[in-house]
Write a protein that binds this DNA or RNA. Structure first.
Lengths: 138, 138
DNA sequence: TTAAGTGCAAAATCTTTGCAAATGT
DNA sequence: ACATTTGCAAAGATTTTGCACTTAA
């Protein structure tokens, strides 16, 4: 029941359920991988560019999706798996870019590091890794 | 001998030494912290905006500086401490944003993680942390 | 001298704002 | 019915491109 799940996610984050929002969220759930604006646009066509910006920034603020900013300037969005509180994201996964196929994915790793430094308080840790993915390694 | 160090860095990365490049690099060495475009522009005034873009992207490609892209969209540049090969950056430090004073810095940490995942090859690990810095923690 | 770097104008993108019309509750 | 969301037009901001002029080696 994808439809119900979609509506539930939107509602449970305190947002009203609209056609556009459902459409956008549907693709995040369906594809379950980080998407850039161009890709999202082509999928949800013909939602207005500005509306899409607003939906994404609203989803992000509410903790439904999170932004991924890669060192090369790419800006992607991915669905939050953990329960991200309103405006406060916390992910125990890394963002991985394959240097061979350029695919970007959110990966769970067992040994997610617990960093620390004297006299500093670390709240949020965001890790971007590049390398070679499963599919390309052979 | 800052002047000599500057020229040496530029030369040793295979670039010709120009007034503008020296000026830009000078501030990176002097301030020794991540700088955004606006700050750099105001420091190196009156270097043309486009020229500055080209200098920065050239420095980055050659491994003199690296880009820091924060989750909030901020784009900063910082000098590379380690020897970054041409086009291939590798840093054993984290990028830290203080949630209280908004300062961004490159921090060395002892326990820099050695991540791995079966069937993946991890080449480059980039870590952005937000929290409270030394100065604001008290 | 000549290959590389700079400045300017202008294009291409990306992101935000204001407001009237449409939609959700 | 009322508050929220959407689409459109237009402004701002950021980044890139082309080309003539200048500078470093």
């Amino acid at each position: 029941m994808l439809r119900l799940e979609i509506e539930n996610i939107i509602k449970s984050h305190g947002l009203s359920v609209t056609k556009s929002r459902k459409k956008v969220l549907k693709y995040f759930l369906k594809l379950n991988k980080p998407l850039d604006l161009k890709t999202i646009r082509s999928l949800v066509n013909p939602i207005d560019r500005v509306t899409l910006f607003r939906i994404l920034s609203c989803f992000e603020k509410k903790g439904i999706i999170h932004s991924i900013r890669l060192e090369n300037g790419q800006h992607l969005y991915a669905i939050c798996k953990e329960t991200c509180r309103d405006g406060q994201h916390s992910h125990q996964h890394i963002h991985f870019t394959c240097e061979s196929c350029d695919d970007v994915s959110c990966l769970s790793i067992d040994n997610f590091p617990n960093l620390s430094l004297t006299n500093y308080k670390f709240n949020n840790i965001n890790i971007n890794v590049s390398g070679v993915c499963q599919a390309c390694i052979f």
